[in-house]
Design a protein around this nucleic acid. Structure first.
Lengths: 233, 233
DNA sequence: CGTTAATATGACCACCTGGTCACATTATGG
DNA sequence: CCATAATGTGACCAGGTGGTCATATTAACG
């Protein structure tokens, strides 16, 4: 919860640049190694401080990690707040979040890499809690928004809200990951695109999310009943 | 490449049940810990063999891992071959693959967990190679299929093939992950669904993939150019 | 049986980890 | 100047890792 508990204490009294050096070293380590593989020895080496000091400042590896992740959470919240400030239209909001995500990755690539490590790693202290803090497309945050969009007739009513959130989450998460980790992107080549081309891809993605993969003419009825034909039941 | 190099050698001469015990122990370890965190000591303990034997059989931790992953690859290829045997329609094929994936997870949960570990972990021997071996929605495999579907007018032509593959990959991957790892599923609750309800969700997902999130009436034009009116409209 | 080859074993090795703590250094303030 | 408090330091610890190898056990064969 309170990731800023080191805001006062010995660490806070350090010169600004020394603090920055330590944060940078720790962030680099967690971003490149994840939590478990990250080595405090590497951090103290890179930050040019002694091991004893590091543990004096943060108490434990876990404390250091929570502190660094807390900084990330702060930056995310600020970015989201700004991006979603005045978006009325549902899909415009989705697009704004996606675009904000891309900008965030460009500005704070290391923080995002650290986030991905936490997302992919199993054994990370307070993992759920931490992820919940930055995950937008959760039922909590996005459920009401979807519900409202549904009432306004912007999204179809024959699929569940959970499915809407699920598909948005899957697409956007993957898109951001593909941007941040080129080898995940199966051929989109996002990482090497110009700003303008990237925006084109974003719009292309939104077209698919809105209208699907089938050509407009071929609308294949609502789900259930006859549609299946195949199995039994 | 050749993950079966232990098919002959000391290990192959072992009694069948002893082989199984070792495979089971190793699979459990890799599935629950990933590659790096997996401990050879744990494996020999669980398999009730000596450490020297394990290294005699497989040479190294990496050798053991590649062997076990090779078994997984074999099972996947068999499952895919069977599932895609005679699917003509494009979306029926997608659905068949998704359904086959769910069945695979149900039958071989540990193998799938191990796959996810490899997917999420960075430093795994021959990672790319291994993942490529089991990844279906790659440009290589799925590109031609999409191209054909496009010519037949089953999928729209105003979005790139890469984007089609991307979105299919994202949605299906995530769906399978949500099924295998409940905490990833933001509210769908796939893991606890009955077979029939699960199929319903599969169909629901396919409806979205085909027709998008917007109601049929609201088709919002092809991408690019004019679409941008974004502010108002 | 004896001899030789194959296999099984676990103590041992070098190395790394997060964390500690007695001690050295520096700051503070009177 | 001293005395006290705060901070910095790195040798050290217990516990883990993947991997080795001399030795013990078993199998094979004549």
């Amino acid at each position: 919860m309170d990731f800023t508990k080191f805001a006062q204490g010995t660490f806070a009294n350090l010169a600004e640049d020394k603090q920055q050096a330590i944060i940078r070293a720790a962030l680099f380590e967690f971003a490149s190694q994840g939590y478990q593989r990250a080595s405090c020895n590497n951090v103290v080496k890179a930050a040019a401080i002694s091991k004893g000091s590091l543990f004096q400042y943060f108490g434990s590896k876990e404390g250091l990690f929570l502190f660094v992740f807390g900084r990330f959470v702060g930056k995310v919240k600020a970015a989201v707040k700004e991006a979603t400030a005045r978006q009325e239209d549902f899909f415009a909001l989705v697009q704004a979040i996606l675009t904000a995500g891309l900008h965030f990755i460009k500005r704070y690539p290391q923080y995002f890499q650290m986030y991905l490590q936490v997302l992919f790693e199993q054994e990370v202290p307070r993992r759920r809690e931490l992820l919940a803090e930055v995950r937008l497309f959760s039922s909590d945050y996005f459920g009401p928004i979807c519900a409202r969009a549904r009432e306004q007739g912007v999204i179809r009513t024959d699929i569940g809200v959970e499915m809407v959130i699920f598909i948005l989450d899957a697409a956007i998460d993957r898109f951001l990951q593909a941007y941040a980790r080129p080898y995940l992107d199966a051929g989109l080549g996002l990482a090497s695109l110009s700003e303008a081309d990237l925006q084109d891809k974003v719009e292309e993605l939104l077209v698919v999310l809105k209208n699907g993969l089938q050509p407009p003419g071929l609308y294949s009825g609502s789900r259930g009943k006859g549609q299946g034909a195949r199995g039994e039941r």
